[in-house]
Design a protein around this nucleic acid. Structure first.
Lengths: 179, 179
DNA sequence: GTCTATAGGCTGATAGAC
DNA sequence: GTCTATCAGCCTATAGAC
């Protein structure tokens, strides 16, 4: 079933799926309703995506790819500066904040796509870069609070300029780390 | 439809539902599978619960009740000590960590039970107690990181003594607040 | 690329016997 | 309190016409 690399309809389907999932969660976002919003019928979706799961996987892939690339680069460069690491992590989650928000609002996407372990791995790898390969309990807790809380802030509605939110969030997360 | 105040079967149903939701998320926890685990048939559930929604609501109610009670008491006493407030908040979430974990793993329960606004209100009320009624952007961000990150820690598997996890978590959250 | 029609399975929920 | 039998409604997915 050869399909074009990029399809305008496929993009509209993805956009409709994202919006619907943000509103009602993954499980409630049915192909019927997605098709309805795009203005086509349900079977037409199957011309653009082999299955519902393939559609969902395509939604989160940009975030997954960028995060893996960031961590691989940081590990290769032995990047140890916590402020730099937090900033890079924030920027990736913020760039894909529509996806971040979707995932944080309904993490069952991760379970359904077998991505929960990957996300857990991101946290552990980030912690290892900042505190070394065998962090203490206190260090693991501090990293968890900083990274988890940072994620909460990227999706928080603060009616403030993004640059200010970014600065305030990075300051708060850095204070948590206790360096 | 008068039913006994406490029913051993109802408790077993709730336990099975909690376990199943923890494993597969709310949407995937069907009445059929819950009944199967309890060892009864699906219609038998309806003797104990009027609907699936009533069953779900009963699962999270203990956490909701305790948290509302904690906040009402803190507000009545004009409690302002951040360390005390964080500790009380941690203790409630930890006491109900099975529920906390369930909610954080799959927040769509909250949306389905119209509880998302309530949880958001908890964070705002806690922030107001610590920083006053009109916190700055930096203060709101710090409170969000501290409270959100604290929640992450109550469900983190750290293979350490609970008292140590508690101490480390409260230290990290307090450091975030920047007092 | 999109359609109509349909298969087959799962869901929450109810009726009524025991 | 629990059962069997059953309902309508929703789902993902496919077949085949245009």
């Amino acid at each position: 079933m050869p399909r074009p690399r990029t399809s305008e309809t496929a993009d509209r389907i993805r956009a409709a799926a994202m919006a619907l999932i943000a509103e009602k969660g993954v499980a409630q976002a049915s192909l019927r309703e997605i098709a309805e919003r795009v203005g086509i019928t349900k079977p037409a979706l199957y011309y653009h995506f082999a299955s519902r799961e393939e559609l969902l996987r395509g939604l989160v892939q940009p975030l997954v790819d960028d995060m893996e690339e960031l961590l691989a680069a940081a590990e290769a460069a032995h990047e140890e500066d916590p402020q730099r690491l937090l900033a890079d992590y924030f920027d990736v989650t913020y760039r894909h904040r529509a996806i971040t928000s979707m995932v944080m609002t309904d993490p069952s996407v991760l379970a359904h796509l077998n991505l929960a372990a990957a996300v857990d791995g991101w946290r552990r790898r980030l912690t290892a870069l900042m505190y070394g390969p065998e962090p203490t309990l206190a260090q693991r807790v501090r990293a968890t609070v900083a990274i988890g809380g940072l994620g909460d802030c990227t999706i928080l509605d603060l009616d403030a300029a993004p640059t200010e939110v970014r600065r305030a969030t990075l300051e708060a997360a850095y204070a948590t780390l206790g360096f």
